[in-house]
């Protein structure tokens, strides 16, 4: 899953969400499409149902990480991009799913380094169980998400 580094920035894209809960699947679906369409050398793409602890080992191997997720707090289909920072207070009381900011806090505490990290999200409206399709709004958000991810991939490396 880890791309080999050349002269460029080493980028990891992680789409996450449940594939059986409607719009929650948009993260992994966008990740899968990016992989199918092709990404530059040195860019790795993975899809996950949930974020788990061992991902920390992958994060610290990369200069830039782009998480892809669904959001619930905005106009349907709205695509947003924000930079994430480590936040240990985002800690889960359980251990089989983690917040991306907590994963970054693990990187910071354990390895003393944190990749430049972005969260690209699209607002969904339907998260029902046993729902295998995106709403039209979420479907329409896929292309802008991909475009935003490609911009982030092409962005110069952080100094």
């Amino acid at each position: 899953m880890t791309g080999s580094r050349t002269a460029g920035t080493k980028v990891l894209i992680i789409g996450y969400g449940s594939p059986i809960r409607g719009d929650d699947a948009i993260g992994p679906l966008v990740a899968d499409r990016l992989e199918r369409e092709g990404v530059p050398y040195g860019v790795a793409v993975i899809s996950r149902h949930i974020l788990t602890a061992e991902l920390v080992a992958d994060l610290v191997e990369h200069d830039r990480v782009i998480f892809l997720d669904a959001a619930v707090d905005g106009p349907p289909g709205e695509v947003r991009c924000r930079q994430l920072a480590p936040d240990a207070s985002a800690m889960s009381t359980m251990a089989h799913f983690l917040d991306p900011r907590e994963l970054l806090a693990w990187c910071e505490t354990l390895y003393g380094q944190v990749p430049e990290t972005f969260l690209v999200s699209a607002c969904g409206t339907s998260f029902d169980y046993a729902n295998y399709s995106l709403t039209p709004d979420a479907e329409a958000a896929m292309e802008p998400m991909i475009e935003r991810v490609r911009q982030l991939i092409a962005q110069p490396a952080p100094i």
């Binding site: 061992e54 251990a95 505490t109 354990l110």
Partner: peptide
């Protein structure tokens, strides 16, 4: 919590991550 463990024994915490990564 896990952050306390990381500060107390980072090598152990890294081992935990790696072992889980191998299984997964």
């Amino acid at each position: 919590n896990i952050f306390g463990v990381m500060r107390q024994d980072p090598a152990l915490a890294k081992d935990g991550i790696r072992l889980r990564q191998i299984g997964q």
